[in-house]
Nucleic acid binder design. Structure first.
Lengths: 183, 183
DNA sequence: TAAATACCCATGTCATCCCATAGTTGCCCG
DNA sequence: CGGGCAACTATGGGATGACATGGGTATTTA
């Protein structure tokens, strides 16, 4: 029974880690944004951050920046930070590309603190970039997760699904055509 | 947490493992979905998951997502997860393909926990994708299994049989002519 | 001081856990 | 050879607890 971490209400099972899916951000959840701009981070994601978390002192935080090519926010922990670093370090110093990416990935990024109840506050700039009003959809993408305006994500999901269909035909060529699945 | 081990109701044959077919998901079963959306995972499948299971700590879970090309759910354990990961890790970060596949394979998927009685709960989104109402058919497919609405699966099975027949004729007939498929 | 932010507590809903029952299968022993 | 016991599976229902959410109070910042 996953005793809540001492003192903090929203803390997730630092103890045993009994829950499933602690490795990656998986599945999607839609939560409410309240009048103060707060929104609960899904408990499953908090559990992942508990391991992967971007720590500042003793509190767990979320590394977050506006997605480069979508009206959404990219969020994650230590693993995401390292990927960003790796991406940038591959580009030559003093190149325009690098400068621009640096601005986008570092300059516009923020570290959001998770409060005792497992919630974060979304800054105004972030909300406008993602077009968020009063609900937020958290989408697990493995090493990171994204925050979307629900309706916009529905469309995105639809498109993604269609694209995947096409790709499957490429990958899958050797498979039995009537047996579904990504195996 | 959930130590229900020996003597537990849902626990699977901790005994000898004398059962056959512990490696792969085979055969089909149809179980009831109760008012809470719960359904028993067939004991034989649990036995497979007992080895292959998607584990987090001491609990066994099922990795599950809507089939890409059928009104059904793809489910499996560690083996399935690794196939998905392998598929994704071949794609470069921040590429369109990867983003789309991530959405479909991570965003739409969930890890379903198996409770002490050997049951899972099917989320609403999953039930609607597969058209499930109050019964679910579990279909073993080797490394993974699928969950279908019984009637829809019957039709699919029929079609599959017909196709197999055709293929047999093409390959020709090394087979005994009087024997139907023994499966 | 006013406003914004962080902290704390309260509550309702829903998921999870736990127990009970019934029908089956297989095994042991009479 | 047959009866009956024991283990297991599937299923139903109740109770407990986690989580999302709302609101209040302290603390900081401009």
């Amino acid at each position: 029974m996953r005793s809540r971490v001492v003192g903090s209400r929203g803390g997730v099972a630092s103890a045993g880690g009994s829950k499933q899916g602690m490795e990656r951000f998986v599945s999607t959840f839609t939560n409410k944004i309240d009048a103060k701009g707060r929104v609960s981070v899904p408990a499953q994601f908090r559990a992942v951050l508990d391991r992967d978390g971007y720590r500042a002192g003793d509190a767990v935080g979320i590394y977050c920046y506006p997605s480069l090519d979508a009206p959404a926010l990219d969020c994650g922990g230590e693993r995401l930070v390292q990927k960003v670093d790796a991406l940038l370090s591959d580009l030559p110093d003093y190149s325009d590309e690098r400068d621009e990416l640096s601005v986008a990935l570092y300059g516009d990024s923020r570290t959001l603190a998770i409060d005792g109840d497992g919630r974060i506050v979304l800054p105004e700039e972030f909300r406008s970039h993602a077009g968020l009003s009063n609900r937020a959809t958290f989408v697990g993408l493995g090493d990171k997760f994204q925050i979307w305006q629900p309706e916009q994500f529905d469309e995105r999901r639809k498109r993604a699904r269609e694209k995947v269909q096409e790709h499957r035909k490429l990958f899958g060529a050797g498979r039995r055509p009537d047996q579904g699945g990504a195996e």
